[in-house]
Computed example of a mutant assay.
Amino acid sequence: MLGILFLTSWVNDPAERLRNYLNSFRAAVEEAERNFTGGRGEREVLEMAKRYYEDAKYSYDKGDYITGLINISYAEGLLDALRMLGASSFKWQRVEEPRVFVGGTFDILHPGHIALLREASKYGRVFVTVARNANVKRFKGYEPVNDEMTRLEVVSAVRYVYKAFLGDETDYLKSVDAVKPNLILLGPDQFVDEETLSRQLRDRGLEGVRIIKLREKIGGFSTSSLIKKILESRCRC
């Protein structure tokens, strides 16, 4: 019964719980490695704990959060056993994830968008700002196929995204101000370059923000090419 209740409590937000446990374990096992004083048998236990951790990470990447939580609980139990045996010492602590900022239109979501968000999730907790309808028309010269609320709903459903929200209609950096990210990930076709963005951030008092810009589209996907393909296959004019 206790096990069932424990599993039920996980289901509230298993992805969030697993991500927190993975970060906490990573910090703890690094400390345990530094302070390890055990023998060969204890070393095998430590290596087994690390293998369970790797299994938990694999499950997280696959979206199998319950299996991941089970694996990370085994890993934590083995690490605690080493501490109880006096073979190592460490402290469990909550580790705050880096905040990663991604912005875009995300009109007609495709595998390239998913790959971008997956890449962002490797660096930390992903916050996404979705471009407003007016800004899409202003910068691209045309209306998006899907309105801003539809695009926001779709992006929010992507499992790599921690939080998504609409951008500001007049100041695109206001969203960055709100998140205060540690890192900004830019797509290859976004209009701003790293140097300009870095200067703009410093002018707003945001220092030390790492900026990474992807040089190539992941998988060669683009919304415009999808629209063209749809028109070619469906238009009979």
Results as ranks from 00 to 15, higher is better:
residue 4 I to K: 13
residue 12 N to Y: 14
residue 12 N to E: 13
residue 17 R to I: 14
residue 18 L to M: 06
residue 20 N to A: 15
residue 21 Y to N: 10
residue 24 S to L: 07
residue 26 R to A: 12
residue 28 A to Y: 04
residue 28 A to R: 03
residue 28 A to S: 12
residue 29 V to S: 09
residue 30 E to Q: 14
residue 34 R to W: 04
residue 36 F to H: 01
residue 36 F to Q: 03
residue 40 R to I: 12
residue 40 R to D: 11
residue 41 G to E: 14
residue 44 E to P: 00
residue 47 E to S: 13
residue 48 M to A: 15
residue 48 M to P: 00
residue 50 K to M: 12
residue 50 K to N: 08
residue 50 K to C: 03
residue 51 R to C: 01
residue 54 E to L: 08
residue 56 A to D: 05
residue 57 K to G: 08
residue 59 S to N: 11
residue 61 D to R: 05
residue 62 K to R: 15
residue 62 K to M: 14
residue 66 I to T: 11
residue 67 T to K: 15
residue 69 L to Y: 01
residue 73 S to M: 09
residue 74 Y to V: 09
residue 85 L to I: 09
residue 87 A to C: 08
residue 89 S to W: 10
residue 89 S to N: 14
residue 89 S to T: 15
residue 90 F to A: 07
residue 91 K to P: 00
residue 91 K to E: 15
residue 92 W to D: 06
residue 96 E to Q: 14
residue 96 E to N: 12
residue 97 E to T: 06
residue 101 F to D: 03
residue 105 T to I: 07
residue 109 L to W: 09
residue 112 G to M: 03
residue 113 H to M: 02
residue 115 A to K: 15
residue 116 L to C: 07
residue 118 R to A: 14
residue 119 E to F: 11
residue 120 A to S: 13
residue 122 K to P: 00
residue 126 V to P: 02
residue 128 V to Y: 02
residue 132 R to S: 07
residue 133 N to Q: 06
residue 133 N to S: 10
residue 133 N to P: 02
residue 137 K to S: 12
residue 138 R to T: 10
residue 145 V to G: 03
residue 146 N to M: 14
residue 147 D to C: 04
residue 149 M to Q: 12
residue 150 T to G: 05
residue 151 R to I: 08
residue 152 L to R: 03
residue 160 Y to S: 10
residue 160 Y to V: 01
residue 162 Y to H: 15
residue 163 K to V: 04
residue 166 L to W: 08
residue 168 D to W: 02
residue 169 E to W: 06
residue 175 S to D: 11
residue 177 D to H: 05
residue 177 D to V: 14
residue 177 D to R: 15
residue 178 A to G: 00
residue 179 V to M: 07
residue 183 L to F: 02
residue 185 L to E: 00
residue 187 G to Q: 12
residue 187 G to D: 13
residue 194 E to T: 13
residue 196 T to G: 05
residue 196 T to Y: 12
residue 198 S to Y: 03
residue 200 Q to I: 07
residue 201 L to K: 07
residue 204 R to T: 04
residue 205 G to D: 09
residue 209 V to A: 05
residue 213 K to A: 07
residue 214 L to H: 08
residue 216 E to Y: 10
residue 222 S to Y: 05
residue 234 R to G: 04
residue 237 C to P: 06
